[in-house]
Every structure is written in structure tokens, then in C-alpha cells.
């Protein structure tokens, strides 16, 4: 327990823009190492934008801007001279809809980050792929069809394939942007179980608009909200148990009890 209380990512005064529209204002919080942190809040409050700022994916979209400080193990990821590619290898990402590369086999999908990232230790590639698929609890289902196309899998399997793909590059942090929104409830629970397993080794930050899911899977929860100007800001951040039984802010209470938001 004690080692799990270390800070992994420290966000300090984060602001983000799309063009002239400000999406996030002055978000500051500390993400704990090897814990599951849930980011909740109403649609459009900047949840996805927030996590995209943590692996420098926000700047991939045109006309975007980030201001503020984000440190990963004490290193400022927005410092001049920092290559976003190296940050993205340490902070992996799983997206809302399963998005395996349609032109690649299951094996190649998992190996993509290593092969195309120029990190491929050819000899160990098969081992790494197997390990990643095992971590994603997919190995037993696909071990005899690694050459098959990734899109041949079911939705839940595809999402686990995407998780395996992200794990194969051995990141330290895993960002998940509503990873279950396209999945059925049973598959969703399976993915949630997986998160519990993964949180032993990885720091996980999951965006979800499903409050029950946030309550189920996370240790810490951050509640983002937006004002009249549609700019998101952090309302409350704390232990999930506390947030869901005794929130400090009436807006959090209103949102999690379904009264508004």
C-alpha cells in the first residue's frame, strides 16, 4: 500500500485550447503510481482533453494549445526539447472505440508499437506479443489465430487487443478514454476486472461518463465540470470511496446522484 501512494504524474495549472475555445482551465492534481484514477463529468467538460494532455496527444489535433505544467516522474513533459514520441511510449493510450489497425494481423497489431516505433528486438518479439496478450487476458482466445485480421474479433476482444497493443511497448501509465462505451455490459465488466489486474503494474487513468463504472474500478476520482463558457475545470478530486459516499462539493453530489449534469 505504501509504495502505491507515490506521485506518478503531477498536473499543475493545466489549460488547454482548441483554436480560440478554451477546453480546460487551471486543472491541478496528482496522479498516484499504480492506482486507478477515474475522470468523470458531464459530456464536453474536457475529460478526454485532460488525459490527452498527459501524453501530448492533444497537440496532434490542428490548432490546439496547452499551457501549464505536467510532470511525469518529476520530468516536465512539455519542457522544450522533450520529444513527444518518448512521452507517448511511457504513457500509452486506449481509445473510446476499439481501433485495431485493419490492415494488420492480430500479431502485427500488438507488435506495431515495437516494429513501427523502431524498437523491435526481433528475437523477443513473439515473447513480447504473447506477454502483452496474456496481460490483456486475450491470449487464450487468439493464440491459434495470430495471423488472422484484428478486425475479425468481437468488440470486446478488439478492445482487449488494443489494450495489448498499448501494453506491448511497456508503458508506465495507461490512459483510457471511455474504453467501454462501445461494449456490452458483460464485456464491460470483463474489461473492468482487467483494469484491476493491470493496476498492480501500471498507473491507470480512465475517462468515463459512466459514474457506476468509475465507482467500481477506481481508487481515486476526479470530477470535472464546465461553466457557462463551456470551459472545463476540476471541481473535486479525492478517494473514490469518499467522492461516492460523501462528496464535498454540491456540484459533485448533484452529478453523481443524477440530479444534474
Amino acid at each position: 500500500m505504501e509504495d502505491g501512494q507515490d506521485a506518478k504524474i503531477v498536473v499543475d495549472g493545466l489549460n488547454a485550447w482548441y483554436g480560440s475555445v478554451q477546453a480546460l482551465r487551471d486543472v491541478s492534481l496528482t496522479i498516484l503510481d499504480r492506482k486507478v484514477t477515474a475522470v468523470i463529468g458531464p459530456s464536453g467538460c474536457g475529460k478526454s482533453t485532460f488525459i490527452r494532455c498527459l501524453n501530448r496527444m492533444h497537440e496532434v489535433a490542428p490548432h490546439t494549445r496547452v499551457q501549464g505544467k505536467v510532470t511525469l516522474d518529476g520530468q516536465d513533459i512539455y519542457a522544450p526539447g522533450v520529444d513527444p514520441v518518448t512521452i507517448r511510449r511511457r504513457v500509452g493510450m486506449v481509445f473510446q472505440r476499439p481501433n485495431p489497425f485493419p490492415t494488420m494481423s492480430i500479431f502485427d497489431n500488438v507488435a506495431a508499437g515495437l516494429k513501427l516505433g523502431g524498437l523491435a528486438p526481433k528475437a523477443y518479439l513473439a515473447d513480447i506479443v504473447e506477454k502483452a496478450l496474456r496481460q490483456a487476458a486475450l491470449w487464450d482466445e487468439v493464440k491459434y489465430m495470430l495471423k488472422r485480421n484484428g478486425t475479425a474479433l468481437s468488440g470486446g476482444q478488439q478492445q482487449r487487443l488494443c489494450i495489448a497493443r498499448a501494453l506491448a511497448v511497456e508503458p508506465e501509465v495507461l490512459l483510457m478514454d471511455e474504453p467501454c462505451s462501445a461494449l456490452d455490459p458483460i464485456t464491460t465488466l470483463a474489461i473492468e476486472e482487467l483494469l484491476q489486474e493491470l493496476s498492480r503494474e501500471y498507473t491507470i487513468i480512465i475517462v468515463t461518463h459512466n459514474m457506476q463504472q468509475a465507482a467500481r474500478v477506481s481508487d481515486k476520482a476526479a470530477f470535472l465540470f464546465m461553466g457557462e463558457d463551456r470551459t472545463g475545470f476540476l471541481v473535486e478530486y479525492g478517494d473514490t470511496k469518499e467522492i461516492f459516499t460523501n462528496p464535498k462539493d454540491p456540484r459533485t453530489e448533484g452529478y453523481i446522484t443524477g440530479r444534474f449534469g
Partner: peptide
């Protein structure tokens, strides 16, 4: 698909050519 590749730490040109 582009974002998936970029988020894996794959460079832009490689993403374009290989994905």
C-alpha cells in the same frame, strides 16, 4: 487509427506510410 499509432509512440511519417 492515426491517433492509435501516434499514441504508441510511432513517428508521424511512419504512421502515414505503415498505417
Amino acid at each position: 487509427h492515426r491517433e492509435a499509432a501516434l499514441a504508441l509512440g510511432i513517428r508521424r511519417w511512419r504512421t502515414i506510410v505503415s498505417v
